[in-house]
Every structure is written in structure tokens, then in C-alpha cells.
């Protein structure tokens, strides 16, 4: 057992971890933030995507101790002041949510993409979410949602 500090969704927290725990275990079991999912446990599906110091990572591939003294954003921390992030709203509006299991990871991927590139082309969006699988195969709508979010973020008055 080891105690680490972590800023999670804007709050400084202390948490006890096991040396062999993954960041995903700490998020889901330690912090009870179950919006981050586990689909494969081996870096293939992207449903465990979170932002680590603003960079997109698969939480199943990061050991918990590697996140010590760093900042983690999960799906629960994406919206601001109790409202939805424009990406979340766009996912609802375009019908990009089906079973929803890929949705948190997709939104985090989109978030990372739009932070880097606020005006992605369709190809860039596709590349941006290429690490996230959607087995309901709603990719068209998801790409549409990211494009719409990008548009709304630049033209907030719309």
C-alpha cells in the first residue's frame, strides 16, 4: 500500500493504492467514478480513455503510481458548473449515443482532439477518435457530433 496525491476532476485528493493497481482501478474503485469503463483491459478499445495532464491516455494501460501528483480528468469532470460540455451536448443532439458504453471515452477523445485542434477536418476527427471503438458502429454520428461541437465552440452565440 502506498498513498499518492492526485488532482481528479479539479479536486486535490489523497488515495491509497496497491502497487499493482491500474489508474483505471483507482478511478472506478478508489474514487467510485464509474463513468470510465473497462472493455478490454489491454489498450484496444478506448472505453477507459481519460485525460492525464491534458493528454489522452488509456487508464487500463497506466499504473496508478504513474498518475501520482498529476491531474486526471474523467467523463464526470468534463462538464462545467453542473452543465454539459458542448461536446456532450452535441453527442445528444446528433444521436451519437447508442448503447453508450463507448460514449465517455469518445467524448474524452474528442475533448483531447479539440484542445489541440479546434477546427478539425472530417479526416482529422476520424483520426482523433481512431483509438476508440464503437461496436454499435455509430461512427458517422459521432464524427458529426465532434464537428458540431467544434462549430458551436467557435460560434457560441448560435
Amino acid at each position: 500500500m502506498k498513498t499518492i496525491n492526485m488532482k481528479i476532476n479539479g479536486t486535490e485528493r489523497q488515495i491509497e493504492i496497491d502497487e499493482n493497481e491500474r489508474l483505471l482501478d483507482v478511478i472506478r474503485e478508489g474514487f467510485h467514478l464509474t463513468g470510465t469503463k473497462e472493455g478490454c483491459g489491454e489498450g484496444e478499445c478506448g472505453v477507459c480513455s481519460v485525460l492525464l495532464d491534458g493528454k489522452l491516455v488509456n487508464a487500463c494501460m497506466i499504473m496508478a503510481f504513474q498518475a501520482a501528483d498529476r491531474e486526471v480528468i474523467t467523463i464526470e469532470g468534463v462538464g462545467k458548473d453542473g452543465g454539459l460540455d458542448p461536446i456532450q451536448q452535441a453527442f445528444i443532439d446528433t444521436g451519437a449515443v447508442q448503447c453508450g458504453f463507448c460514449t465517455p471515452g469518445m467524448i474524452l477523445s474528442a475533448k483531447a482532439l479539440l484542445l489541440k485542434n479546434p477546427t478539425p477536418s472530417k479526416q482529422e476527427i476520424r483520426r482523433g477518435i481512431s483509438g476508440n471503438l464503437c461496436r454499435c458502429t455509430g461512427y458517422e454520428k459521432i464524427v458529426e457530433a465532434v464537428a458540431l461541437a467544434s462549430d458551436r465552440m467557435r460560434n457560441p452565440e448560435q
Binding site: 469503463k37 467523463i75 464526470e76 468534463v78 454539459l84 456532450q88 453527442f91 445528444i92 449515443v97
Partner: peptide
């Protein structure tokens, strides 16, 4: 709009795990 859209985009939807 789908009724479960909001809980699914916020990570609030509960899957069995």
C-alpha cells in the same frame, strides 16, 4: 432526443459492472 442520452454522456448511466 433519447431519454438516456444525458446520463450516458455524463458517465452517470449504470451498467452492471
Amino acid at each position: 432526443l433519447r431519454v438516456d442520452g444525458h446520463t450516458k454522456v455524463t458517465g452517470g448511466a449504470k451498467y452492471p459492472a
